[in-house]
Amino acid sequence: MKDGIHPEYEEITVVMSDGTEFKTRSTIDTKDGVYRSEVDSKNHPFYTGNMNFQKKAGRIDRFKKRYGKQDD
């Protein structure tokens, strides 16, 4: 390997959104050696099943408004 071209590979602590922690090695440049995750499998909508369908509902409403049956 060439000297001086590779990032530092150091041990960091990963703190998940629920407060759980684990140690791993990474090339992430953290100031204090701690990476704080905002999204993980315990709070991401894909994993929790709490998907938000507002955008889809808006498209359906616009479609119905344009092409739907008109109430007179």
Rank of each mutant, 00 (worst) to 15 (best):
E11A: 14
Y47I: 00
D71V: 08
K65A: 15
R59K: 14
D29N: 13
F22N: 01
T13A: 00
G49W: 09
S26G: 12
N50D: 15
D71H: 05
E21R: 15
D40W: 07
T13V: 14
D3T: 11
T13F: 00
D29F: 06
V34Q: 07
F63W: 13
I12R: 01
D71I: 08
Y35K: 11
F53P: 04
Y9N: 11
H44G: 08
K23G: 02
R66W: 02
K69G: 00
D71C: 00
K65H: 08
G58D: 15
M1A: 14
R59L: 14
V15A: 02
Q70R: 15
M16Q: 06
K65G: 00
M16C: 09
I60T: 11
R59Y: 13
H6W: 08
T13C: 02
F22G: 00
F63Q: 04
K69P: 01
V15T: 07
K31R: 06
D61I: 09
R66K: 13
T24I: 05
I5Q: 02
V15R: 13
N50W: 02
Q70A: 15
F53Y: 14
S37M: 15
N50Q: 15
D61E: 13
V15H: 00
T27H: 12
S37T: 04
D40K: 04
M51I: 14
T13H: 02
A57Q: 14
E11Y: 02
Q54L: 06
H6F: 06
S41Q: 04
S17P: 07
G4V: 10
V34M: 03
K55S: 08
G49T: 09
T48C: 07
E11C: 03
M16V: 01
I60P: 01
T13Q: 09
F46K: 12
R62S: 13
D71Y: 04
P7V: 07
Y67A: 07
N50S: 10
E10S: 09
V15E: 08
Y35M: 11
K42S: 12
D32G: 07
S37W: 06
D72C: 00
R66Y: 03
K31W: 01
S41T: 09
G19C: 06
T27R: 09
S26N: 13
V14G: 02
R62W: 10
Y9E: 04
S41M: 10
G19H: 05
E8M: 12
N50Y: 07
I12A: 00
K55E: 04
E8W: 00
D29H: 10
H6L: 10
P7D: 06
Q54I: 06
Y67E: 11
D72R: 06
E10H: 13
D61W: 05
M51R: 12
T27P: 00
P7K: 13
T48W: 11
I60F: 13
D61S: 08
R25N: 11
S17V: 02
H44P: 08
M16N: 08
T20Q: 15
I5K: 04
E10Y: 02
V39K: 07
E11W: 00
E11P: 03
G33F: 05
E8D: 13
